[in-house]
């Protein structure tokens, strides 16, 4: 069995209608998201961009089932989100690997938590290691790896249960630019190949353009959609595309939407 066979092509649609969220803080009610309407097709790669604090992570966490919302409805693959859905893979800015587990065991963790460890798990972990290019590091301690490799392990772990939806919150923002671009391209290729619906939260417009089919620009206070930009660059995506005219045009569209949003906020 090759890695391609063992990772299925399984996208799921995501729909949000009229979603609002207000945090209750010590200093009073803080409206974070207002009236978010968003439909994401199965297999689409979508980025959320926007200023710090505009609610990108909150929106992603709502879709992950980690944060509750006050109004509206959310469905992922037709079902309301909740914690522990095998079909939702989640990746954070930090790799959060368990230092007491080696690389393989870290990737195996989702199987153990979901009580789905079986005869084929070891093969699956091997395939995932190969996919993220860490076959030679299976028995290494996670803290012996570089930051980029640690994020690769986290990526493999997020893919472990073969989710139809990948949610990534600034997954590579702690890495240097070179590693980051490299990993971004890899993730873009994976989503092209496996057709997983992917949402990427990022501060970088060029990162969003390079990877996405579609970019959702968010404005702050309260967080709302201020732009929905289609990225029609051809796939597979390549780093050289960053220099192209079309790339610049799209980037400027995103930038314009964001600054318009900023003005409305003030």
């Amino acid at each position: 069995m090759t890695q391609k066979d063992s990772i299925a092509v399984t996208g799921e649609a995501i729909t949000l209608t009229g979603v609002s969220k207000t945090y209750m803080t010590a200093s009073g009610a803080l409206p974070v998201l207002r009236d978010i309407d968003l439909h994401i097709e199965a297999g689409q790669f979508v980025s959320f961009v926007g200023p710090s604090g505009c609610g990108k992570s909150t929106l992603l966490n709502i879709i992950a089932g980690l944060v509750s919302y006050d109004t509206g409805t959310v469905t992922v693959g037709g079902q309301p989100p909740r914690e522990g859905r095998d079909d939702i893979g989640f990746m954070l800015q930090k790799s959060v690997l368990m230092p007491w587990l080696n690389v393989s065991k870290n990737i195996e963790l989702p199987f153990i938590i979901a009580r789905r460890r079986g005869a084929d798990t070891a093969q699956r972990v091997t395939d995932l290691l190969e996919l993220v290019g860490l076959s030679d590091y299976a028995t290494m301690n996670s803290w012996e790896l570089s930051g980029g490799m640690q994020q690769r392990v986290a990526l493999a772990r997020a893919l472990a249960l073969d989710p139809g939806v990948m949610l990534m919150d600034e997954p590579f923002s702690a890495l240097d630019e070179f590693k980051r671009e490299h990993l971004n391209i890899e993730v873009a290729h994976m989503s092209e190949r496996f057709g997983k619906t992917t949402i990427l939260v990022t501060h970088s417009i060029s990162e969003a353009v390079l990877m996405s089919d579609r970019i959702i620009a968010l404005g702050a206070n309260p967080g709302r959609m201020v732009g929905d930009i289609t990225v029609d660059l051809e796939r597979p995506r390549r780093p050289e595309m960053i220099g192209s005219d079309r790339f610049q045009q799209i980037s400027n569209e995103v930038r314009a939407a964001l600054s318009q949003g900023m003005e409305e906020s003030q």
Partner: peptide, 26 residues
């Protein structure tokens, strides 16, 4: 214990016992 790790365990749907024995304790 790392807050991010707790979030990860929540996203994986870990039970209280799983979180205790596989995250909190170690």
């Amino acid at each position: 214990v790392d807050e991010n790790a707790k979030t990860l365990f929540r996203s994986l749907g870990a039970s209280k016992a799983q979180t205790f024995f596989r995250l909190t304790l170690p």
